[in-house]
Every structure is written in C-alpha cells, then in structure tokens.
C-alpha cells in the first residue's frame, strides 16, 4: 500500500513537471547508439557519491540490478564486481570515469559500463514537516568505443509532512510515511524505475528492438 501511495505521488510529480516542459522524443532518436550496438552485459561500477550520506552508494547498489535485469540486460553481479574492483583499489566510480572503458570488455566481458551519480540522498526537516530527497544521474558508456550510449537523471522529493492541504490523501500518506521517514531505499527504487523506463529494452525483454518509437521526456544534458 505504501508503495502504491509513493508511486501515486511520483506519478503526480512527474506529470506536473512534465507539463512544464512537454518535450518528448523517441527512444530511437534519443539513444541511436543503443540500437546500433545492442549492449547486453552491463557492469555497474560503484556509485559516485555527491550526496552528504557516506553509506548511500553501498545501500544504493542493492537496488539497481533488479530493474536493469527486468529491462532485459545481463547485469554483472554487483557483489562480485564490487569485490574485484575493490581488490584493484577502486571503491568509487569516479576513479573509473577517466579510464579507458574498453578495458572492461576483456576483464569482465562487459559491453557497457553504467555510472550512477548520487546527487542527493537527504532528509530535510522543517517546522511543518519534512521531506526525503533522492536524486541520481545515470550514464551508460560503451566498452567498444567509449561512446555514451544512454543517459538520464531523476530527482524525487518525497514529502513526509502529511499536511499539505489536508484531506484524505494527506492523512493516508502521513500514516504510511510515519514509520519510514528516512528510508531512502524505496525512493531510490522508484528513481530507478522511472529512469530505467527510458532505457531501450535489452535482449531478454520482449520489447527488445521494438521500442524505438516509444517516447520519453527529453533530457538534453545530465547534471
């Protein structure tokens, strides 16, 4: 139930922001290289942390494999790749941003590397309530030619005050939230859901190579 309410809020939020800049583009037009290169196996490197929460990348890492796999990709198992990268002294994706991505084709058999930058992972309190914010930017880079294949970013502000205008909905939300004020993970999952929705489907998804005409909200530049 809590998930439904959260989704409801997110949907409302994204529809509202959608109205402000209704600029839609097809997946094929936005990410042509995805349809040319057809990456299958994705290496998700440790998230780059620009938030103030030190534990955000580790907690976040448990949320990303599921949506990517359901989108049709082979996600190299994060507990294993994280361990191997750590043995090489890599604990933060930022260390790999300038590294030649083609190395990872041989090392891990990865077709693409996913960089996730966590920009916000915060709780704000104010007199009438508060909110939890999770913001992340995603960038998929080819291990064939170092080209960027896909990018998207999303921020979700989850209001925990529960008295924004009163009414039944507000009451329900405040009840649902009271036990989970600072639980970022469900919000991170929702961010993932919205973002991965813009990713063209991979080989194991029934929409593979059939979703080029699907439109998404255009995003010119990440951060």
């Amino acid at each position: 139930m809590r998930k439904i309410i959260l989704l409801l809020l997110i949907t409302t939020a994204s529809l509202l922001t959608g109205c402000a800049t209704p600029n839609y583009v097809t997946k094929q037009a936005a990410y042509p290289l995805m349809y040319q290169q057809h990456p299958l196996s994705i290496l998700v490197v440790p998230a780059i942390n620009h938030s103030t929460a030190a534990d955000a990348p580790e907690l976040y890492s448990t949320t990303i494999a599921t949506p990517l796999a359901e989108a049709g990709y082979y996600v190299l198992p994060l507990p294993i790749t994280n361990m191997l990268l750590q043995q090489q002294g890599v604990v933060d994706g930022e260390q790999l941003e300038k590294v030649d991505a083609t190395k990872f084709q041989g090392l891990f058999g990865a077709d693409a590397i996913l960089f996730v930058t966590i920009n916000q992972w915060d709780t704000n309190y104010y007199i009438t309530g508060g909110n939890v914010t999770v913001g992340a930017a995603f960038r998929l880079v080819s291990t064939k030619d170092n080209e960027e294949l896909w990018h998207y970013s999303q921020t979700i502000v989850y209001d925990t005050s529960g008295n924004s205008g009163g009414g039944l909905l507000a009451a329900i939300i405040s009840t649902a939230i009271s036990t989970a004020t600072t639980d970022y993970v469900p919000i991170a999952r929702t961010v993932n859901g919205i973002v991965v929705n813009t990713l063209p489907a991979g080989k194991y998804n029934p929409h593979y190579d059939k979703d080029g005409a699907v439109t998404i909200l255009e995003q010119k530049q990440v951060n």
Binding site: D55, E58, L59, S61, T62, T63, T66, A69, E70, G72, V185, R189, Y204, N205
Partner: peptide, 17 residues
C-alpha cells in the same frame, strides 16, 4: 516480470546494511 526475485531485494539490502 521476466524473473523470480523472491526476497532478494530485502535480504540483499539487510546483508549490505
């Protein structure tokens, strides 16, 4: 969903946390 995930996200999160 293509896959069966069971309690994966919960136990993975708890083990990590």
């Amino acid at each position: 969903s293509i896959y069966y995930w069971g309690n994966y996200s919960q136990t993975a999160y708890e083990y990590q946390k």
